[in-house]
Design a protein around this nucleic acid. Structure first.
Lengths: 199, 199, 199, 199
DNA sequence: TATGAATGAGTATTCATTCAT
DNA sequence: GATGAATGAATACTCATTCAT
């Protein structure tokens, strides 16, 4: 079999996947403009035309990575809709679980997350969607009397998104805290506030 | 007075300021790479060599804008250090005032903020500084028993930064809410939490 | 019979012919440079290496089409040599017949004609040959007193070629006039001229 | 002045004109696709960016040359409209003069003519326009009884265009015959025909 | 007979930057 | 203080062509 070491040759799907993985790495750390196709292919051990065999253009592979992230995230949030009508005390743990899911996904897909949630132009749109999702989840709880009724849920949703964003970058990615830990920290704070409970 | 009829009566300093203002606008909305020197000078009504009369390179003018933002922000935070030893009840308003200051600054310097707080690579460093600042402010209150002692102030500081970040983009810049309004919303939520107060 | 189920039952010769036909179509309408091998093989339902099984290179298949045209045309003109020593009155009809033959050939081989007579670099050479052929035919008539002796037969031959060329494109290919009609129109004009016959 | 020999430096208009002239030469002899920007600029003694200082893209400079030709030709034909109501005998000389004008223009602008009348895709459109122009000129003579009434003027116009085309390439450009000579040859033939005048 | 996979070599175009005046 | 003119250095992308199977 394969004499004279045809790189890995095998299935073209492999080359494609390799390029995609390397692109994720590069885009995540150098950004779109500082990532050069020439570098990508070099790291993948293929030539430039091979790149264009699998991707229409630089923009296209970038978009594909964003879509991958976006799809993963929306799959996640779709699944983790808070189901209403559950008893009061489970609320914190349910929210925590949802957040933990997100942080876990981010943690397992750091490069994709950097691209789709931080660097790309589309990041803003993705965050907007996430905020909407969260807001709807929150509102469904209001009716049940979980939360104070006068809360601006849109504001809180955005605060949550900002929080997720920031803690991902400063606590999760550097490995300072794990998904569950961060999630419960957020939940505890947001639900109870910072003040020492005084009578 | 200007002999030999200078075009548009632009003293050198004026050309420089004009270029800087236009650059802020362009960098803020198109980002570093999509902003072209050729466009800048065209909008400023000068030629390319003129640009290099005032700025060493593209990177330099960009950095100057970041520095402008960075300086403004740190001036602000330096000024608004929470002074300890003040009575308990004034805490919320003092924090609110600090945040309001930040949002006002951001609001009055949208382009600079977009560049220095959102788009640039240095943004991360700036946020990190801001978080440290906030954290120190918070810690000084802990001793006074304002806050629950078990709070992770580093986490909360990052949450605050993320919150500032997100609300600036989604509420402040679009004009949905004003600085004071946003600031007090944040403070109220973070201090008291979301839960309806039940006995 | 074809064992081992050849795809589409295409014997090699069929693939070759198919490629040739498609190439004629493409080259004729898009020209050499805008015709891509990738498009050819795609339209033929084969892969690129298959193309190179039958043709040495792009240039080669193009040349083959030109040769096909060139051969067809010279076969035609060889056959239709004006035979000398025929009586005076048959001359116009004999010339008309020759031209009709050419137009018919062109009409039946539009793609080939477009390539070999219009688009290719070789077209010039082919026209030159045709002009020589025509000139010789004409000269043989001069001796017999058919034509005015002072005519520049080389000039007239070129005029005929230009005429054929132009009318092929503007009358024959669009279907405005048929081969015979065009041929007799030319002959009538060239023999008698445009002037109204006045005594 | 100008130490250290800045090429010809002078006015940018000169560089532009030089590039245009060289482009005409190259396009005329190698065609669009075989003409490389790199060659153009090399022959002009400038660098590639300089090319793009004056022309938007390869296509643009090509089009500019075509437009130059097209404009020149239509100026010419506009000027040389046959004016009706002149006496019979002057007709041949008037037509001859018109044709001479065209051949002279072609002769003086060989490169442009090669591009605009022979090689480009637009050539066909330009010839179509020329044919229309000629046809209208001819028709205006019919009324005056110059020509046989049953002549198909569209056909004749196309014949003339084909004739012009061919003789330009085979007689004019090689310098075998001059403009006037070719023009009068055509006129004589087309008006009187080839046949020897027998009673 | 046919192909999946890959590539060598080229080619237009862009942009920040700099002389000489 | 300002400019007309020019350039060095990249970079994405294309296409005919070819292995190895």
């Amino acid at each position: 079999m394969s004499k004279r070491g045809r790189k890995k040759g095998a299935s073209g799907e492999q080359s494609r996947a390799l390029l995609l993985a390397i692109a994720a790495e590069e885009f995540a750390h150098k950004g779109y403009y500082e990532t050069k196709i020439s570098t990508l292919v070099q790291k993948a051990g293929v030539t430039q035309p091979t790149f264009y065999l699998y991707f229409k253009c630089k923009e296209a592979i970038y978009q594909e990575l964003i879509d991958l992230f976006s799809k993963g995230l929306s799959d996640l949030t779709n699944k983790s809709r808070l189901e209403p009508g559950i008893d009061f005390n489970s609320l914190p743990s349910r929210i925590t679980k949802g957040l933990t899911g997100i942080f876990t996904f981010f943690s397992e897909n750091q490069n994709l997350t950097r691209i789709g949630f931080f660097n790309s132009v589309e990041a803003e749109e993705i965050k907007k969607q996430l905020a909407i999702q969260i807001k709807e989840n929150l509102i469904s709880e209001v009716d049940n009397g979980y939360f104070q009724t006068e809360l601006d849920m849109s504001l809180i949703a955005e605060i949550l998104v900002g929080t997720i964003e920031r803690l991902t970058l400063t606590k999760l990615f550097p490995g300072i805290k794990g998904p569950e830990e961060i999630a419960s920290g957020i939940v505890h704070l947001l639900l109870n506030g910072m003040l020492s409970k005084r009578e």
